[in-house]
Design a protein around this nucleic acid. Structure first.
Lengths: 216, 216
DNA sequence: TAAAATTCTGACCCCTCGGTCAGGTTTTGG
DNA sequence: CCAAAACCTGACCGAGGGGTCAGAATTTTA
């Protein structure tokens, strides 16, 4: 079968094939890990969804764990995005809703990432602990400092920065982690654009009003 | 060993032993399911934590699935508690903070329940779907109606009842589901009373102020 | 174009886990 | 007190999963 490859196919450099395969494996892995969790996902399931034999997947990733870790690190980068776009100089009236919007977009566009992340934390973050304590924590502290500055400038009420962040994270992330529950309760196949829109508005509203952030 | 039982031990009625064993099994199962998830939890792990031989666990619960379902249904009851304590007659100024308080208490006192629930939803709610669509949904609709009534009475701003509930659920539940992340970020062994307190106050504050609920 | 390096894969191994079962022990009922 | 019922358990089994490996196929290098 591979012998009858056309010259067009042959012209593709091997590194391209390698990239394609890696991409396919990572993609399938992400889907399955999100859907079934780490242990319930079998290498052969990933392989068959990626259109490769199992042994070939093991050729690219020596172990299941390696593959999972790879998926995770890609994921954390995504998850941390946008946090650093909030600065002390900006007014929270603008910066906060923008951040919330970004988080909602992520829940909508990358629900798998959110779900794997959630499952990992839920089960003790065995593979993410390190990075949580270093990378994420550094960013967390910075962001809390920004909130502190805003409070000092009287731009918002003196609430707990840490817990405010937790609330924003959990309520936005719910739109991927708990999307199934929501859609079941609201008799929908799945959440639609308007649901994300309504959620976004509600969260922004509660945060702004609740923190006493004045509309300019 | 069991032959040398003292008369005191013998005096215990069998049904008591049965109850004890069931309780132990259910308890161990809950712990382990919460910690490791369904697939990673082995029957022998449950057995050894319950201090029983594996075959004995299988005597009480024919299959692992049966045991899991039992844990789940107990759990859902707990999870749905207190929602029906909010009624149209009460002022949201009282009823909402009370509900939020109850949810926070649950996150603190029954983190395992919350976590198993979260994991189940995260992975498609294969065993809980039915009950979500019937029991929980009925309660959900009732509660949304209560919120609607409050809005009609001008006791609160016209926000989306559904999404307000989602926010309350997710932000309170985060104090068990994401407790690990929070404690890692804040350099603590685990969350303390004051953390739950601060979280509770923040959530209540945002909800009340955000929904324009006037302090009496 | 031949040899070296890389990539691919079917067949196989081993171990764990859910579940069974035969036979033993304890409790209950008459 | 004895038989029937309920309860308990060590030993075993089959399936499925992660991972290995020898060698084939393909690409690169010289």
């Amino acid at each position: 079968m591979s012998k009858i490859q056309t010259s067009t196919a042959k012209r593709r450099k091997m590194s391209d094939i390698r990239k394609d395969n890696l991409k396919q494996i990572l993609l399938s892995a992400e889907n399955l890990f999100a859907e079934r969790g780490y242990t319930s996902t079998t290498i052969s399931a990933i392989a068959s969804q990626a259109g490769l034999p199992k042994a070939n997947v093991l050729y690219y990733f020596k172990t299941k764990e390696t593959l999972y870790k790879e998926v995770l690190t890609q994921l954390l980068v995504l998850w941390m995005q946008h946090m650093d776009e909030m600065t002390s100089e900006q007014h929270p009236n603008e910066a906060l809703p923008r951040y919330i919007l970004q988080k909602m977009k992520q829940s909508k566009q990358h629900p798998n990432a959110s779900r794997i992340f959630a499952a990992e934390i839920l089960h003790g973050a065995p593979y993410l602990r390190e990075q949580l304590q270093t990378d994420l924590k550094a960013q967390f502290i910075k962001t809390c400092q920004v909130f502190h500055d805003w409070i000092a400038k009287k731009w918002m009420d003196p609430i707990s920065p840490e817990h405010l962040l937790f609330l924003i994270w959990s309520s936005t992330q719910a739109y991927s982690d708990y999307a199934l529950q929501s859609s079941l309760l609201m008799d929908k196949e799945e959440l639609g654009d308007n649901d994300f829109e309504t959620g976004l508005e509600l969260i922004s509203r509660l945060v702004l009003k609740g923190c006493g952030i004045n509309l300019v």
